[in-house]
Amino acid sequence: MDKREVLLEVQNLSKFFTVNTSFFGRPIDVLKAVDNVSFKIYKGEAFGLVGESGCGKSTIGKMLVNLYTPTSGKIIYDGVELTALKQKERRKYCKEIQLIFQDPYASLNPKMTIGDIIAEPILINKILPKNEVEKRVNYLLDCVGLANHQRNRYPHEFSGGQRQRVGIARALAVNPKLIVCDEPVSALDVSIQAQVLNLLDDLKDEFGLTYLFIAHGLNVVKHISDRVGVMYLGKLMEVADKNELYNHPLNPYTQALLSAIPSVDITHKKERIILKGDVPTPINPPDGCRFASRCFRANDKCTEHCPELKDIANGHFVACDFCGEINTERRIILENKQT
């Protein structure tokens, strides 16, 4: 049904961390950071991944750029199964997938000038001969809205927003196709956030990039993404086109999450779903639905088996046993739209 080209596909990806082992090295406490997650990212789109802290969204990002090795599952990039490659071959693909970090204060080496920071990946990957590097750095600085003469300055001389621009230029330096943006604006002030978001938008068109945009701010994700996935405790709960997801959330967790965001629009007050309790620990999680302990719709069945992520209609995926039942009406609308 879908003619769009898949750039990246993640199949049943898991990452477990052993927190505690027995005397003989057998794992006792296992933290399931990412548990059996599958999704596709199409060429040229921005795929948003939202969730609360500890839900595993950053862990997915780190696995994609080879900072973590998956416990199981496949990462298929442009038809190549990255997870099956040896480290040496895997590294070739590292320059295709780049990462922009959350904290612009911690992700730049304070002892290097920003010119050197941006030139480093070009030199390491031997993308350009040495004499052309300077020209390229100047071009990149220009792209992200920094002046050429600033290249000899050190990170501490820049503000948070400017540093994030340096981080973006560094990611662009190796001509990546996919950029994983891990909370790129959450450390910035509101007025600066807008500048960086607009910049990311422009660069996407200019360089033909695809984004995996990880953030906890749902309004930010909605602004930048085409499709959005919602995570909770290592599981993907719902994936859909952004307007579909934000206007017709099906999973109870998505509904609660969307209702919890304070809105600046004071003219229409919305009904708020207040969830009880805290996010449980991802160490040795229960078998059933991860959200069952806080869900307002949960029954006994939910705690027993874990619902799978199913396509309800037209690319709207939900992991919840109730969703078939609540949304017959919606499904008909979607199916009609499709035909």
Partner: peptide
Amino acid sequence: LDVTIQAQ
């Protein structure tokens, strides 16, 4: 804090 806790 996370948004659902923030609401609480």
